[in-house]
Design a protein around this nucleic acid. Structure first.
Length: 635
DNA sequence: GTAATCACG
DNA sequence: ACGTACGTGATTACT
């Protein structure tokens, strides 16, 4: 047995690395007594993040408590695998930092399943996020092990991940190759593997004390663990990729990008993604960069001339839907850059990422972070399946329902507006939502619409679609905490007209401003934290306290989606779930039962929130995601 | 690493 | 007193 002594928070701790079957017997007897004392911290080291790739390996499984850690060399197989598997089976409670990753690794590479691990798991990363959800770039501590261990356990605790990358470099390995290439017996690797467990074991009670001191509801902590499990199960299932289509798409986009890059090169632009080169070329062509109807060029945050999409579209004489405006002679470089950049982005960010992340069974297993944003919104990475182009079916066409299935999606109707009406007790708005079914069909041919309803409240029966558009902008402005100028800039409306619309909106729905002021005052009295309707802590930036309306609405809408996921599991349809997308779920349903699945999921996404009905509408399509009616792919 | 850009709800 | 668009992920250029 190799034992590494270390000091954590002034205590002597030991990291054991068993080498023989006698050592493993000692590990077993420690496990039995540690398990009797309380939860056991668990962690894994693997060859990287691509859990589902063919050559992926689980290298070590670590177990620990506050003073002792055991690094079991899974990679050696036989008795080591047997001992670790046994320990994972008998553990009554496990503390894991970022459990979904280890659940998925163990589910794929050991005999244990997410279903058997999750109910016994305490995720310290989830707990840290409930204390403070802010990421480091937003002024928070972040939820990684390192900053939390440093804050709660020992300020001088090593950066086990960061320091290892330095070790990788000394071994002529990189951040990418290091996890697979570092020798299994490397002392720092084993020391840090064990230390992570000890730090996790010590972090957990500190976080419990913090959560208790902040009166965070135990039910909320349990809810987040259930959502993490559901998202891990979606990740394990993955989504089928149409390989032939995607390979074809990749080469089509490559050809298209090259074609437009060649055009740009004729104007001296060698990198269409370089704003500096574009600016120079446009000025050389005699462009003033002042958009029609505007008095000055657009600038970026740091004062450079903007070369963004809006500017390029205007020069190419196109609107936001890429339709010709006919107000000027289109600039051929602007047109080439727009097309070239789009083809390049779609290829690199979508088509190629699909092909790089797909597993041997043709499935894409994105990472679903069930509690990522400050508002606890979920995020999806590797690939970012929440952000595929929605105005064109080309990319979504690459993702398929199961054989014999069709794709479905069910999205909430104006959920953030409904949540706003509920949370701010907006009388007239609530009335509209509550009586949505009673409005005449000729007034709302496509069903009740909150923005048209608002326009009618203000303008009377003569309200037009143009009015609706203005009030829709104002509604979004309220949900985002924006002002009329910002909304006017975003929607292209006249600032003066938007200012009037905002005034009318405020008169009709005075409760929003009132609630915003109340929330901001309460937050200032309680350390710049807003307590959401589900008891979630939402830290505010002092200089952007107005954002509280957005945080309250966005996080409540996220919790409504979370409850829907629990309901869908309860209804027995977890296996059909593919993705959560903020106000929508994507599912795969057997062809003959698609309508029934859609109805059930719709029911799971229908509730009452403080007297306001939350409703959802499901759609089903053909085999591909792109074939859903809103995208319109032929198959 | 930062800035800019572009994809989404 | 006044007004503020919110939240993400990924890529590329450039320092």
């Amino acid at each position: 047995m190799i034992t590494y002594p270390y000091q954590i928070a002034g205590d002597l701790v030991a990291i054991h690395v068993p080498e023989t079957s006698e050592d493993l017997d000692e590990f077993r007897s420690w496990t039995l007594s540690a398990n009797a004392r309380g939860p056991v911290a668990v962690d894994t080291e693997t060859t990287g993040l691509d859990i589902y790739s063919a050559n992926y390996r689980l290298r070590t499984v670590q177990f620990g408590d506050s003073h002792t850690a055991w690094v079991i060399h899974w990679e050696l197989g036989g008795p080591f695998v047997a001992a670790a598997t046994w320990a994972l089976r008998i553990a009554t409670r496990m503390q894991i930092h970022n459990a979904p990753f280890d659940w998925c690794v163990l589910d794929r590479h050991s005999e244990l399943t997410i279903e058997s691990l999750a109910p016994r798991t305490i995720d310290t990363r989830l707990k840290a996020g409930l204390v403070d959800p802010r990421q480091p770039q937003d002024g928070g501590r972040g939820t990684a092990l390192k900053p939390n261990a440093a804050y709660y356990v020992d300020p001088s605790a090593p950066d086990t991940q960061g320091d290892l990358t330095a070790v990788f470099r000394s071994l002529k390995l990189t951040k990418e190759t290091g996890w697979a290439g570092i020798p299994l017996n490397h002392p720092t690797y084993n020391l840090y593997a064990g230390l992570d467990c000890i730090l996790t074991a010590r972090l957990d009670p500190k976080l419990d004390a913090a959560l208790d001191g902040l009166s965070v509801r135990p039910r909320l902590i349990q809810y987040e663990h259930e959502l993490a499990r559901i998202c891990a199960i979606m990740q394990r299932k993955g989504m089928l990729l149409d390989m032939d289509y995607t390979q074809n798409l990749d080469s089509r986009l490559a050809e298209e990008a090259a074609r437009y890059e060649a055009v740009a090169e004729r104007y001296g632009v060698t990198s269409i993604n370089s704003p500096a080169q574009l600016q120079e070329a446009f000025i050389a062509m005699g462009e003033t960069l002042v958009l029609s109807g505007e008095s000055a060029p657009r600038y970026t945050a740091s004062g450079a001339l903007s070369m963004g999409k809006d500017v390029l579209l205007a020069m190419a004489d196109m609107n936001r839907d890429w339709k010709r405006l006919g107000v000027r002679k289109p600039n051929p470089l602007a047109d080439a850059v727009l097309h070239g950049k789009r083809a390049g982005k779609w290829r690199k960010s979508y088509a190629q990422t699909f092909l790089e992340t797909v597993d041997a069974d043709g499935r894409i297993h994105c990472f679903i972070n069930s509690m990522q944003a400050r508002t606890a919104r979920m995020s999806i990475t590797r690939p970012a399946l929440q952000t595929l182009p929605s105005g064109d079916w080309m990319i979504r066409r690459a993702l398929l329902a199961e054989p014999g299935h069709v794709m479905g999606s069910c999205d909430f109707s104006a959920v953030e507006m409904r949540v706003l009406a509920a949370l701010a007790d907006v009388k007239q708005m609530k009335h509209g939502f509550q009586h949505a079914d009673e409005y005449p069909k000729d007034e709302y041919p496509d069903g009740f619409d909150i923005h048209m309803y608002t326009a009618r409240l203000v303008k009377g029966a003569g309200a037009t679609k143009a009015h609706r558009k203005l009030f829709k902008g104002a509604g979004f402005g309220k949900v985002y905490g924006g002002g009329y100028k910002g909304v006017a800039a975003q929607t292209g409306a006249e600032p003066e007209e938007m200012r009037r619309t905002f005034a009318e909106y405020d008169r009709m729905f005075p409760e929003i401003k009132r609630q915003s002021n109340r929330w901001q005052r309460e937050a200032r009295e309680t350390g710049m934290v807003h307590l959401s309707v589900t008891g979630r802590r939402l830290p505010l930036d002092r200089e952007r306290a107005y954002a509280v309306v957005n945080y309250a609405c966005q996080s409540a809408a996220r919790d409504v989606l979370g409850q829907s996921l629990l309901n869908i599991e309860e209804a027995g349809l977890l296996d059909s779930l593919r993705l959560p997308i903020h106000d929508e779920v994507v599912f795969s349903a057997p062809k003959g039962e698609a309508e029934e699945y859609a109805r059930t999921i719709q029911d799971c996404m229908t509730f009452d929130l403080m007297g306001v009905p939350i409703t959802a509408e499901a759609d089903t399509g053909g085999r591909s995601w792109g074939s859903l009616p809103q995208y319109g792919a032929p198959e």
